[in-house]
């Protein structure tokens, strides 16, 4: 039972990161129909920002804030430079544009920074282990669970208590009519990107804190997982993205814990198999667009 609880906490921690990333994808998708595959590069850029801020001697909390600021700015610029010119174009065009942005950023990271992983000096206080009763939980995992929950709560409050948040929920439902309210389309989209940047930034910090290094391809795998999570949840549904993220994290952790050792290399294959099973029964995803933007 304790082992199960232990795994559950691991799943919450991993799933939480997937949920934040999937949420970032869903926020943008729900408004402009773009699946932003360059979302992972926002994580990577956060990692580099934290890394260099620490090298320049900033204390860790300030380095984290710098990382988040860079992530939001990068997301904002991505929209302004790459996605605004193709807004309203077909899904294929949007998708290819996001692949291009992703590829260009990776090449820039490789050539301007380094193709190799750069170590990030995570404070030793974060690598400790917290013991709660019979459970042993990494400090970073604990922080990651708390931060994820705080982000979800914060985003929920933002979406329901502020005009900008209400505008985003309305935009996800009917963008044209939102413009008839006299709200600038560009500011609503820019807000969506800034939020998705913040979510990617938080996920990026958590990811780097667990791995202790950053490399040009760091964001690729988690964002692919987040994409799968968003699909499981029902693309464009924010609550779905969160549910999908936690479910995928749970599936991966449970498989990791209970698969026989000889099958462990196929863990991801089994995870994808379970995802396919979910989609066979719920092709629209677990929480399709009807329940959109309820968290």
């Amino acid at each position: 039972m304790d082992i199960f609880l232990q795994q559950l906490l691991n799943a919450l921690s991993l799933g939480g990161t997937y949920a934040l990333l999937a949420l970032g994808l869903a926020v943008v998708f729900s408004i402009i129909g773009l699946i932003n595959f360059a979302h992972g590069e926002l994580m990577t850029v956060t990692g580099y920002a934290v890394c260099f801020a620490l090298i320049w001697g900033l204390p860790f909390p300030l380095a984290v804030i710098a990382g988040l600021a860079v992530a939001m700015t990068a997301a904002f610029l991505m929209e302004r430079v790459a996605f605004r010119p193709v807004r309203g174009a077909s899904g294929t065009t949007l998708l290819l544009t996001s692949f291009a942005v992703s590829a260009i950023l990776r090449v820039l990271f490789q050539n301007l920074i380094s193709a190799r992983p750069i170590p990030v000096a995570i404070p030793a206080s974060l690598s400790g282990v917290v013991t709660i009763g019979p459970l042993h939980l990494g400090m970073i995992q604990l922080i990651s669970i708390i931060v994820t929950l705080a982000m979800l709560l914060g985003l929920n409050l933002f979406l329901h208590r502020t005009m900008a948040g209400r505008a985003m929920r309305a935009a996800a439902e009917d963008f044209a009519v939102l413009r008839l309210m006299g709200l600038r389309a560009n500011s609503v989209v820019a807000t969506a990107f800034a939020i998705s940047g913040l979510l990617a930034g938080v996920a990026g910090v958590l990811w780097v804190a667990q791995r202790g290094s950053v490399d040009p391809l760091m964001g690729a795998l988690p964002v692919l997982k987040a994409f799968i999570a968003a699909i499981i949840g029902g693309l464009g549904s924010l609550s779905g993205a969160v549910a999908g993220g936690f479910l995928l994290g749970f599936i991966e952790v449970i498989l990791q814990a209970y698969l026989p050792e000889s099958l462990l290399p196929y863990r991801d294959a089994f995870a994808i198999l379970l995802v396919i099973a979910v989609l066979l029964f719920r092709p629209q995803g677990l929480l399709a667009r009807k329940t959109l933007v309820k968290l």
Binding site: R166, R169, A170, E173, D174, V177, L178, T291, L292, V293, K294
Partner: peptide, 8 residues
């Protein structure tokens, strides 16, 4: 906006 309240 059907998922928003009347007030919103």
């Amino acid at each position: 906006f059907s998922s928003l309240t009347v007030e919103e």
